[in-house]
Design a protein around this nucleic acid. Structure first.
Lengths: 156, 156
DNA sequence: ATATGAAACTTTAAGCTTGAAATAATTTGT
DNA sequence: ACAAATTATTTCAAGCTTAAAGTTTCATAT
């Protein structure tokens, strides 16, 4: 996937292939940097951060399946990450009266406080890592990616 | 990381944060689709495909550390993936005369043939998945991401 | 009421991923 | 020549990830 810059293929379809390779390399590069900083500065991981970010935006809580859908990862995956966050006291599962299959997952007070601090650092990092992208280009790129997403969501 | 579309934050730095979120969601969406197709159609995985793609471009072979650097993953990671490819007969390690710490890793004949077939399908998939992105936007986006990369490489 | 099926979640097995520690071979400084 | 540092790689432990199978609970249709 992360194929290379050297031979510069040409021909129909190659432009999109090249775009994909660049996209993937850019996101992997940034992801790797974020992982490292999350580990060094806050002793946490990207998946944990992702889950906490989702929950932070949903004070009333989320179902496991909501988290899974929102984060684009499998059910079983979320189970493990939430288990660890619970054991660290950052997240709580609350059984519901209505449906005993489900539980509302939400940040604890401690989790919310911790996330606030990490999120502030995170936003600063992104500003730094993407600093060379002009505000203008950032908006334009975002627009293109958004239209990609809406096209995509018509699928499946 | 994969934070959401809903509240649409505003303020300085938010444009870049939003860009990053879109970038990550786009690449995860495409990656997930590719994984699934690689599994279903060829019973292989994205990491294996990545390694084979790198080796395909280097008929003379690559060192483990070259692979690691090129693919942006850790050393130990490459060891495992290559081990599995070797056990499947798709890749071979060749001890070198000069430096007995290293070995040249290359595709076997079988591996090269297999990769050719998979790569053709892969290129078709990308064309399909990114089909809604105009050639023009594709080139522009690629350009922006390329300049991001060159800025980045000045770091560390 | 009760079987049938669907939904929400967890568990499992296999593989991916990292950072750190361990091994082995080469290079460098003296 | 030889100790020390460096380089290339593997091993290890912990955690992430998926798809598939299993469990429990709920909804629906007789």
């Amino acid at each position: 996937m992360v194929a290379g810059p050297l031979p510069a293929p040409t021909g129909p379809g190659k432009d999109r292939l090249r775009l994909w390779i660049r996209l993937l390399r850019a996101s992997r590069t940034i992801e790797a940097e974020l992982r490292e900083r999350l580990k060094k500065d806050f002793n946490t991981t990207l998946p944990r951060f992702d889950v906490m970010a989702a929950l932070y935006r949903a004070p009333e809580g989320m179902l496991m399946s909501d988290l899974s859908r929102f984060l684009l990862v499998s059910n079983g995956n979320v189970t493990g990450i939430v288990d660890r966050l619970v054991s660290e006291g950052l997240v709580a599962r609350a059984r519901r009266n209505g449906d005993r299959r489900t539980s509302m997952v939400r940040l604890t007070e401690e989790g919310s406080k911790a996330f606030g601090i990490i999120a502030a650092a995170h936003e600063g990092w992104i500003g730094e890592l993407l600093g060379k992208v002009s505000e203008d280009d950032a908006r334009r790129l975002t627009g293109m990616l958004t239209s990609f997403r809406s096209n995509w969501e018509g699928r499946e």
